[in-house]
Amino acid sequence: MDDAAYPDESHDFDEALLVVDGQMNLDLSGQRVEVQAGEVFIVPAGIPHAVAPGSHGTLVIIDR
């Protein structure tokens, strides 16, 4: 993650987002959720989500 925003997307499957280091600012259906290093956030299938500005560090995306 490089401080830039990424556009909204949604999937027909759950998506796991693992922040290895840094912080991810996740826009989840209009609500901001901060995910810290070492945390995993599961985005349920069909929920629009985007990486918000100010996110930085290493993100691992786990898709089915």
Rank of each mutant, 00 (worst) to 15 (best):
R64W: 03
L18Y: 14
Q36K: 14
V40S: 06
E15F: 00
A52C: 01
H11W: 07
S10M: 13
V60Y: 00
I47V: 15
R64N: 14
V60I: 11
G54H: 02
S10I: 02
V33N: 05
L18C: 05
H49N: 11
L28T: 06
M1R: 10
D2T: 13
F41I: 12
Q36D: 14
F13L: 15
V40F: 03
G54R: 02
L59F: 02
Q31H: 11
A50N: 04
V51H: 01
H56L: 02
F13P: 05
F41C: 02
A16S: 13
V33L: 11
R32N: 10
V33W: 01
I42M: 14
L59G: 04
P7D: 11
V43C: 10
G54A: 04
P44L: 12
V20I: 13
I42A: 07
V60D: 00
I61F: 04
D8P: 10
D3Y: 12
P48W: 06
G38A: 09
A4S: 14
H49M: 08
N25K: 13
G46I: 09
I42S: 08
P44G: 11
D12R: 11
G57F: 06
A4K: 15
Q31S: 14
V35R: 07
A50I: 00
M1Q: 11
D2R: 13
V19T: 07
D27H: 07
V51L: 12
I47Q: 13
V51T: 14
S10R: 14
Y6C: 01
V33E: 10
G38H: 08
Q36C: 05
I62R: 10
T58H: 10
